[in-house]
Design a protein around this nucleic acid. Sequence first.
DNA 1: GTAAACCTTACCACGATGGCAAGGTCAAGT
DNA 2: ACTTGACCTTGCCATCGTGGTAAGGTTTAC
Lengths: 134, 134
Amino acid sequence: MHQLITIGNAAKASGLTAKMIRHYEQSGLLQRPARTEAGYRLYNNEQLNQLKFIRQARNLGFSLHEIKSLLSLWQDPERESRAVKLMAEQHLHEIETKISELQHIQQVLTELATSCRGDSSPDCSILQQLAKID
Amino acid sequence: MHQLITIGNAAKASGLTAKMIRHYEQSGLLQRPARTEAGYRLYNNEQLNQLKFIRQARNLGFSLHEIKSLLSLWQDPERESRAVKLMAEQHLHEIETKISELQHIQQVLTELATSCRGDSSPDCSILQQLAKID
DNA sequence: GTAAACCTTACCACGATGGCAAGGTCAAGT
DNA sequence: ACTTGACCTTGCCATCGTGGTAAGGTTTAC
């Protein structure tokens, strides 16, 4: 099954865009694929799976830098699952930190929005609060 | 009290950096401040309050574009508090959407991290899941 | 044979911030 | 008066991930 597909089809099959695939190659996530005589990129099945892997990891918010490591680990038969788990936990920690920050903002914004009458008068507790000198 | 301060002191007093203050001026958030003969920017008290306002709004995650609107509303005695409240609610909605997205990621990552033994063996359910073809 | 749909590279853009370089200015200490 | 250090100026480049556009070459289908 050494089926080779062009970048547009690889994009469709992976859920990425051709633009992103080229960018990932440029960023060193992917090895340079084969080319036709005319210079068209050709992807085999293994490379397509790598693209899908990247997409899954992107959907979980891993950075390209992190994904580069994850791909290395994936392709390394000598890896220790410890290393992978560590990356997941670190990323999880960042996610949880961001959630906390956003929840704090959510709380403040909710209070502000609630306290503002929101009518045609210029009096606005939101602006008052933003302008407060603390 | 027409006390004029240079950008470094305005930065300290507002909690921004001089770099950011110049950038906000460049982006049209702030009117061009007075200058000394040597070209140093000089900020008065009203402008300092604007800087503090910007910082508060930035801390709530408003974009510079949104802050430009908020500043306009703040300075407009004819404003309707409705407009301000609407902006706050729209921003709140975006925040809540982001929180939901991150919580979904959090859930998946937690499951993944839990399911991986994290030892010296190469077997790793995280990688298996990322590589899954769905 | 031509048109549509694909591919190539090379640029520029976003948004908000940081960094660095090369230079001018001011204030304090000697 | 002179030096030193701390400030200020502008301008450019970098980040991160993605999108756009332009100018051109190639393949496919009719």
